[in-house]
């Protein structure tokens, strides 16, 4: 779901940059105050692992493939703010070093995959009580991909309308096609995320018990 250069109307990618900068600055500020020494190697290893996982596309049928985004996974293991920094770092390296995703669209890619992926994935999985946590992990990951794809489809549709067809894709094609493919890709994301977290809960339960940098802790900082 890496948006290339020249696909979106400049106003849309400009707004994407502003939203991304605000969220990344906020996440860095919170992380600055709350990051724990023990989280640093986990963050780095997880980010590197997600980077290589994103390179492996799996076929989903109909001549289409999908790959892990990993934002929900990072958010569930580290908290949404640290997760956002992990995904942002990956997206910047993919864009600047490997040309995966356009530089003008980097802000939108951070919004669709990083911000939505981390906060939606984290939020949905937290709704579920401990008893249904595994299902919550699956649904959180699936929803993160699906909502990210929906927002991307809206960006394509608005770009098309604003530019009279010079950029973007009409809504009647963008919305159903993006949602159709990503509803299936999200299942892959959910299964992989569920598998990794359940593997970690058996082999390294201490990782799952590590303190997460969450919205609540940011309020605690404000109270302090």
């Amino acid at each position: 779901m890496h948006i290339p250069d020249g696909l979106m109307e400049p106003i849309i990618w400009g707004i994407g940059w502003i939203i991304a900068l605000v969220f990344v600055a906020l996440a860095s500020r919170i992380l600055n105050k709350r990051i724990h020494e023990k989280q640093i190697p986990l963050m780095a290893v997880l980010a590197a692992g997600i980077f290589v996982a994103q390179m492996i596309n799996f076929p989903i049928g109909g001549g289409t493939s999908g790959h892990l985004i990993g934002a929900a996974l990072a958010a569930m293991l580290l908290g949404p703010y640290a997760g956002l920094i992990v995904i942002t770092t990956i997206l910047i390296i993919q864009c600047l070093i490997f040309g995966d995703g356009g530089i003008t669209a980097l802000g939108l890619n951070i919004v669709n995959m990083g911000i939505i992926g981390c906060f939606v994935g984290w939020g949905v999985h937290k709704i579920f009580p401990e008893k249904y946590r595994t299902f919550g992990i699956f649904l959180g990951s699936w929803t993160a991909v699906f909502i990210g794809a929906f927002i991307c489809a809206l960006e394509l549709a608005i770009s098309f309308s604003l530019s009279n067809g010079a950029f973007g894709i009409p809504a009647h094609i963008a919305v159903p096609t993006m949602l159709g493919y990503h509803a299936i890709i999200g299942i892959g994301e959910g299964i992989i995320t569920m598998g990794i977290i359940s593997y970690l809960s058996h082999t390294s339960p201490d990782i799952l018990k590590m303190p997460k940098i969450t919205i609540r802790t940011s309020k605690e900082v404000a109270v302090e």
């Binding site: 890496h2 020249g6 696909l7 596309n57 001549g63 999908g66 356009g102 394509l156 096609t177 890709i185």
Partner: peptide
């Protein structure tokens, strides 16, 4: 195979343009 966005671009008849930055 292309990913979900690449397939959507194909179905919308959009071709990838020259990148603004060459990695």
């Amino acid at each position: 195979y292309g990913d979900g966005l690449e397939r959507t671009m194909e179905e919308g008849g959009v071709e990838e343009r020259e990148p603004a930055y060459s990695a």
